[in-house]
Nucleic acid binder design. Structure first.
Lengths: 342, 342
DNA sequence: CTAGGTGCAAATAATTTGCAGAGGC
DNA sequence: GCCTCTGCAAATTATTTGCACCTAG
């Protein structure tokens, strides 16, 4: 309910050449105050209660208008009629649809999205949108337990899960740098890892603070079911990196390269992932996190170059590392642009 | 077209208490001779051509009848009306839907299915069926190239891809046993691995022969796009096992245990996977493969026990291995029953 | 004043149904 | 002969539209 309770003042994002009207305003407001997936008929019934002189046709026309304005999204659950859900600040998602009670639940899975993209690519198909619907029986219906408050808007859930993912990544990053600081022998190299571990720790506490703030907005937020399913890329990256650090024969340059690889992957992932959403808190979280990862990346690259230079000056291992030095150099800040792509 | 061209004589799988009728037979035959996704109206048009005295209502009634009989499946591409596709010997699948030409393409992704199951489980939702639709523009429409012969029924494609997966798994199994035969020091242990490598090799050639037979049914079969997308479980199993073999300190018992783990995982996967399909060649391929894996599994377990016994008799490493011996023993043939669950 | 916005009733579109006659077993 | 199948026309359901009138900018 709290979702878009306050009509986004962006109510004026209305389609060009469109006039304001009190009836439409009423319909839009009633729609926004509801949650879930309303059929045109549900909405007509609600509207009639508020003002029975508003006609069915107007409701249909307004629904279409809302879809054009980006306030509503038309969804088809195979019932032979359409339903409408909030679209403003409400990320596109997938659905679990209970055939017993006809309620529907939302979720997002970046893992599924990634596979869908792969399939489309394999068939040279340009995917514009995808629909994933799981039909069956919901928990409430199969256990007969009370209808949980499932309410909670997905904007909040999305932000919560985005933060959880960012935090998990940050933690494994911290673990990576902490281990690096222990394993690297060269005092200078150790110092770099130390510095980055400190950085990560501070980011981590920022993120955790933010997570706590979010929880304040809804006391039960933490206990609500997962909305964003995700195992992808970034999670495993630092863990894998940490494993690599443990292998013997890892010199300081190599350790830095591993760090660069991790940060680059992480940055790309979050950037790309954040970009696919409509304006929302979750989107912002991903993009800001991507930025922080980029800063680490740049820091690592600077240190890497400095180290290469120093070693070259000393003639130390210079020959053995020069090829790789160039490989690391490829990842200069300018690479940012490329990261939006695939 | 060739799909179900010959009306499956199983035409008599018609719903109980139902009589035969020449009109219905006609409609069913016309439907089966078509391919793709027909709307009720498309079918009416086709029927009218053959016998214009058949009414629209009868076509609708027959469509419902075919759905009940398992000959047709009702699908919804969000067009505001339903379409119907073959269901007999035609595995459930997902769709790529071109908004430009309105054609739709089929695919199956066990990877997506697995994720969908995970999501459902996380939400305590009992999934009965799931829909995955990718909307966009198909290759033909975006490149303007000729309409490929896409025809080819999915029964064949499914069988082809099932075989490819089985072959790939068999290959990696072969690789695993071959490596085992090289690495294991104990002559007896080496012999076991050798034997299994030989087994795998013979299975492999059986599967490859079968693959060749399949190709004969459709000269272009091999070049058609992937129908079944799959990276899952079994692929990586043996590869991971092979890696483990390379670690030092792997004694013969340990090597056998690794083999057991691989075969068990592989067996479970194929069994479970085969079971989720309707009767089809692909289903059979998966289930037969699961059986072969089970035989290997049993063989390995027998050898494992024999080895444990021998070592115990010699007093060799007996103490160190006894705990693990029991762990291995858990996997007795009776475990077959359990593998269907999960 | 003029281009939207709205109500009402009629029009579509896809699909279903009641009923009387036709046909399979 | 009984019960299902069929045609036809009318009914239903979800949604759209034509048209005359209303109202914001």
């Amino acid at each position: 309910m709290a979702t878009t309770a306050a009509v986004p003042d962006l109510d004026r994002l209305r389609p060009a050449g469109t006039k304001r009207s009190s009836k439409r305003d009423l319909i839009v407001n009633v729609f926004l105050k509801q949650e879930g997936h309303l059929s045109a008929d549900d909405l007509v019934a609600l509207i009639k209660r508020a003002d029975h002189r508003i006609s069915r046709a107007t409701v249909y026309r307004t629904l279409q208008w809302m879809v054009d304005a980006g306030i509503a999204r038309k969804v088809d659950f195979g019932e032979g009629r359409f339903r409408f859900e909030h679209s403003y600040r409400h990320p596109r998602h997938f659905h679990l649809i209970c055939k017993t009670c006809n309620r529907s639940y939302e979720f997002l899975s970046s893992d599924i999205e990634a596979l869908v993209e792969e399939v489309a690519a394999a068939r040279a198909f340009t995917a514009r949108q995808s629909v994933v619907q799981i039909y069956g029986t919901c928990d409430a219906c199969s256990t007969g337990r009370v209808t949980q408050d499932e309410g909670s808007n997905s904007e909040l859930l999305f932000a919560r899960d985005a933060l959880r993912i960012a935090i998990a990544t940050e933690r494994s990053g911290l673990e990576f740098y902490a281990r690096g600081a222990r394993l690297v022998k060269d005092p200078r190299g150790r110092q770099i890892f130390h510095k980055l571990a400190t950085e990560e720790k501070s980011h981590l506490s920022t993120l955790e603070g933010r997570y706590q703030d979010l929880l304040k907005q809804d006391p039960q937020l933490e206990s609500r079911p997962t909305f964003l399913f995700f195992k992808g890329a970034a999670h495993g990256l630092f863990a894998a990196g940490a494993d690599q650090l443990r292998r013997d024969g890892v010199d300081d340059l190599e350790a830095l390269r591993i760090g660069i690889r991790c940060e680059r992957g992480s940055h790309r992932f979050f950037k790309r992932y954040g970009e696919r959403f409509e304006d929302s808190e979750g989107k912002r979280i991903f993009l800001e996190f991507a930025d922080e990862e980029r800063e680490h990346l740049e820091l690592l690259i600077r240190e890497y170059r400095a180290l290469v230079k120093r070693q070259r000056a000393t003639g130390h291992k210079a020959a053995a590392s020069s090829k790789r030095a160039r490989a690391g150099g490829r990842v200069k800040p300018g690479a940012r642009a490329r990261s939006a792509q695939r």
